[in-house]
Every structure is written in C-alpha cells, then in structure tokens.
C-alpha cells in the first residue's frame, strides 16, 4: 500500500502539473479537493479519472462513489487495490 501511495503521489504531481509540490508535501490522508489539502478542482477530478483508467485499468462505474474514492491519496490507493485489473 505504501508503495502504491508513493506512486500515486508521483502520478498526481506529473499529470496535474503540481510544479511546486513534492511527494513529501502530500499528506496521504489529507483531502485532495477543497481547503486543507491539495486544493484540486473539477478539471483535476477528470485528470484523476484518466489516471485510474489508463494506468490501473479502473473505470468508476458509480459516479456517486466519486467523492468517497477521491477523498485522499490513501482512499484512491485503497480503491485501486480493491479493484485493480491491470
């Protein structure tokens, strides 16, 4: 899980062009969206959907689950671990 969390941090930094952020700056349990975390927005959510589908072969079938899955790097990693096909 720790390895996946670090990999995800790197992918988020690269894909979302988080120029001023390093993996160490990202708290795996902090919220990705809104205040108090990375402050990502709806366009970033689309980019994360693409990361999940392209890199892990995971398609989120139920959009209602999105808020829960995308809460933090840790929740993303847990969802990938439970659903990964690639």
């Amino acid at each position: 899980m720790e390895e996946l969390i670090e990999k995800l941090k790197g992918e988020l930094i690269a894909e979302l062009n988080l120029e001023e952020v390093t993996p160490a700056d990202i708290d795996a349990e902090a919220p990705l969206f809104g205040d108090g975390g990375l402050g990502l927005d709806s366009i970033d959510a689309l980019e994360i959907i693409l990361i999940l589908e392209r890199n892990y072969g995971i398609k989120i079938e139920n959009p209602a689950q999105g808020k829960e899955i995308f809460y933090s790097v840790k929740t993303l990693a847990e969802y990938i671990t439970a659903n990964q096909k690639k």
Partner: peptide
C-alpha cells in the same frame, strides 16, 4: 498515443 480515447482535458481546454 491513447488511440483517440481517454484524452486529458487540460491541453484541449
């Protein structure tokens, strides 16, 4: 690269 699928929105915008 992605065979016309799964395109990132930011460069398009």
């Amino acid at each position: 690269v992605n065979s016309e699928r799964l395109l990132n929105p930011t460069p398009f915008i």
